[in-house]
């Protein structure tokens, strides 16, 4: 079932066109990789899909409903309840510990302190960083910070996770652990993931891959015809 859909997305920054009519669909529980050269519009696309930016033309549908025409307040509420966002660099709150950072979205959503902390610890554990639960970002390695940020993005159990180069700052094994956790989450909890990367070996974790080129889906690129991997017990 299609959960997220874009139709004819167009977006410019002043005179600079970033998206020139992008169509795509993301099914429930699907991991869609978006690849393409630097500057082709990947991050802009992610911002439009997640409701951070409003497209100049075209539409974004979430669960069959227009997303881009909703008010700013509505969209930011949706981002808190249904979406998770993960960037290349963690963007944790420096004054808070790892556990407090991860619990934060739950506290903002009105959950009790104890429950929020318990959920935070569970997710830190899943991402293999339970040992730094009481450390502040300044006392963690980049890879640990990134995995905390992933825990924070997932703790609300979003229906869609938007990840922009999530492994860009990690070494191979740390990246692999993060990707393994993301794919497990997608397949067990039916979380959809839009995974932006310029790395083919990262895109290979996705169920499907599209390539952007000059702000549009490249028809000669790797499109919907690349089937999910036939082997393995991922589903």
């Amino acid at each position: 079932m299609t959960l997220l859909q874009a139709r004819g997305l167009v977006k410019s920054y002043g005179p600079t066109p970033a998206l020139r009519g992008v169509d795509l669909e993301v099914a429930e529980g699907e991991i869609l990789a978006v690849t393409g050269p630097s500057g082709c519009g990947k991050s802009t696309l992610l911002h439009c899909l997640s409701g951070i930016l409003r497209p100049d033309a075209g539409e974004v549908l979430y669960g069959g409903q227009r997303l881009d025409t909703r008010s700013e307040a509505d969209r930011s509420r949706l981002r808190r309840t249904d979406f998770g966002v993960l960037f290349q660099f963690g963007q944790l709150v420096p004054e808070l510990t790892a556990a407090e950072n991860v619990a934060l979205p739950l506290l903002l959503a009105g959950q009790g302190r104890r429950e929020a902390r318990a959920a935070a610890l569970t997710w830190l554990e899943r991402l293999d960083v339970a040992d730094v639960a009481d450390a502040r970002p300044g006392e963690m390695s980049g890879g640990q910070q990134q995995r905390c940020a992933a825990a924070r993005a997932l703790v609300t159990e979003p229906r869609v996770l938007f990840a922009d180069e999530p492994t860009g700052a990690l070494d191979a094994l740390a990246g692999e652990r993060l990707l393994a956790c993301l794919t497990r989450t997608a397949h067990e909890r039916h979380t959809s993931i839009v995974l932006i990367t310029h790395d083919a070996s990262v895109a290979a974790y996705a169920d499907r891959e599209i390539t952007l080129r000059d702000g549009a889906v490249d028809p000669t690129g790797l499109g919907a015809d690349i089937a999910p991997a036939p082997t393995g017990g991922r589903r």
Partner: peptide
């Protein structure tokens, strides 16, 4: 690449 990645993520 996808096939081999699936081998890697297969428990």
């Amino acid at each position: 690449l996808r096939e081999l990645t699936a081998v890697k993520t297969d428990p």
